[in-house]
Amino acid sequence: MSEIQAYVNERVLVVTSDGRVIVGTLKGFDQVTNIVLADCQERIFSPDDGVEMAPLGLYFIRGDNIAVVGLVDQEQDSSLQFGALRAQPLPEILHGA
């Protein structure tokens, strides 16, 4: 489970199991992928408007609710035109149905 050790103190993009996208600096993690993120912002995608950035501060996310943790390429990220991006929010993870 040292898999995300390499991401510590880096900017990461977390996709949660309810389909939200949160970007923050990874400060810690454990065996079951509980994580701590500093300087978080939620990126809210919508088909009608550009991406809304909601500042969240310091977050703890329980592992069960995490789908993906991605390393953000800062250079590419800062070149993205979020104001012009249109997309449906990601679907939630469906374990049951």
């Binding site: 991401y7 993009l13 996709v15 943790v69 991605g70 390393l71 390429d73 990220d77």
Partner: peptide, 9 residues
């Protein structure tokens, strides 16, 4: 949503 991600867990 993940356009700026190249490496992920």
């Amino acid at each position: 949503h993940m356009m700026s991600v190249k490496n992920c867990f």
